[in-house]
Amino acid sequence: MKYALVTGGSRGIGRAVCVQLAKDLDYKLLINYNSNKKAAEETLAMVEEVGGSGQIIQFNVTDSNDVKNALEDWHEQHKNAVIEVLVNNAGIKKDGLFMWMPMEDWSSVINTSLNGFYNVTNALIQKLLTNRYGRIINIVSVSGLKGTPGQTNYSAAKSAVIGATKALAQEVAKRKITVNAVAPGFVETDMTEELDEAELKKMIPVNRFGKPEEVAHVVSFLASDKTSYITGEVININGGIYS
């Protein structure tokens, strides 16, 4: 049985990715959540609604032991299962000017995006290499490419994941594992709901925020077997805001 694991799969882009993968590809979904079990169950129900199947799995991506234990337990219970697709989507933002940024806001954002990438990918990479096939897709951000004022921590974290994507892609390519990143701009999710959309969309050439589904389509494409010659890439989905 083949699975696709989506971290932070309970809401926003993660939820849209789970539903899209269920529609497009023949994978069972492993929907990771940290604290919001109800939202994860809602995502699973949406996956089942479109004809997919899967289960939820709880772990905190910032805690390497938690990640390792949860995934080892899962593999123990699903001996014939293989996770072929990993979407590193979990992320948080704690915006503020760098001058007044407390250490905790810096660390928690870096921990979730960058150390989260390490903890989950490192826990699975050996199995992917043994399997000789895999798709790793990292959700980054326009902030990681151009830098966004008020988001020095988030920009640093996402930029670091972009570097890691390019390096890891070269390490594992011979085993038919691709590693790519998707960089959304302004997308309608919980994360952006407090932003002034009317004001910000004036900066966006297509004059609107993106929808989570528009990101999910690209992730689903990168998770498919059609993309064996695309690796180490960062695909921007931002309405032309940064090109």
Results as ranks from 00 to 15, higher is better:
1 M>S: 14
1 M>L: 12
1 M>F: 12
4 A>M: 05
5 L>D: 04
6 V>A: 01
7 T>I: 08
11 R>L: 15
12 G>E: 11
12 G>S: 04
12 G>I: 13
14 G>C: 09
15 R>S: 03
17 V>F: 03
19 V>F: 05
22 A>I: 11
23 K>E: 14
23 K>C: 08
23 K>P: 06
27 Y>K: 10
28 K>I: 02
29 L>N: 07
29 L>D: 08
30 L>W: 04
31 I>A: 10
32 N>K: 05
37 K>W: 05
38 K>A: 13
39 A>D: 07
40 A>M: 09
41 E>H: 11
41 E>W: 07
42 E>W: 01
43 T>C: 13
43 T>Q: 02
45 A>F: 02
48 E>V: 07
48 E>N: 15
49 E>G: 01
51 G>L: 06
52 G>A: 02
53 S>R: 11
56 I>S: 07
59 F>P: 01
62 T>Y: 04
62 T>N: 12
63 D>R: 08
65 N>S: 14
66 D>R: 00
66 D>A: 09
67 V>Y: 13
67 V>Q: 11
70 A>Y: 12
70 A>H: 10
70 A>E: 08
71 L>Q: 13
72 E>N: 15
73 D>M: 13
75 H>F: 15
76 E>Y: 13
77 Q>K: 15
78 H>E: 09
79 K>I: 12
80 N>A: 14
81 A>C: 13
83 I>D: 09
84 E>I: 13
84 E>K: 14
86 L>E: 12
89 N>R: 11
91 G>E: 12
91 G>M: 10
97 L>Y: 15
100 W>Y: 15
104 E>Y: 06
107 S>P: 00
112 T>K: 06
113 S>Y: 07
116 G>T: 08
118 Y>P: 06
119 N>C: 05
120 V>K: 09
120 V>P: 12
122 N>P: 08
123 A>M: 04
123 A>F: 10
125 I>E: 00
134 G>H: 06
135 R>M: 09
136 I>L: 02
137 I>P: 09
137 I>A: 04
141 S>A: 12
144 G>T: 10
145 L>R: 11
145 L>T: 10
146 K>S: 12
146 K>Q: 15
147 G>W: 12
147 G>A: 05
149 P>W: 13
150 G>W: 01
153 N>R: 07
153 N>G: 05
156 A>C: 06
157 A>G: 04
160 A>S: 08
162 I>S: 05
164 A>M: 14
168 L>V: 04
168 L>Y: 12
170 Q>M: 15
170 Q>N: 14
174 K>H: 11
177 I>M: 05
178 T>L: 02
178 T>I: 01
181 A>G: 02
183 A>Y: 04
184 P>T: 08
184 P>Y: 09
184 P>E: 03
186 F>N: 13
186 F>R: 03
191 M>Y: 04
194 E>D: 14
198 A>Y: 07
205 P>V: 07
207 N>C: 01
208 R>V: 08
209 F>E: 00
211 K>A: 03
212 P>M: 01
213 E>F: 02
214 E>W: 06
214 E>K: 01
214 E>H: 03
216 A>K: 01
219 V>D: 06
220 S>D: 00
224 S>W: 03
233 E>Y: 01
234 V>D: 08
236 N>V: 11
242 Y>C: 12
242 Y>Q: 06
243 S>C: 14
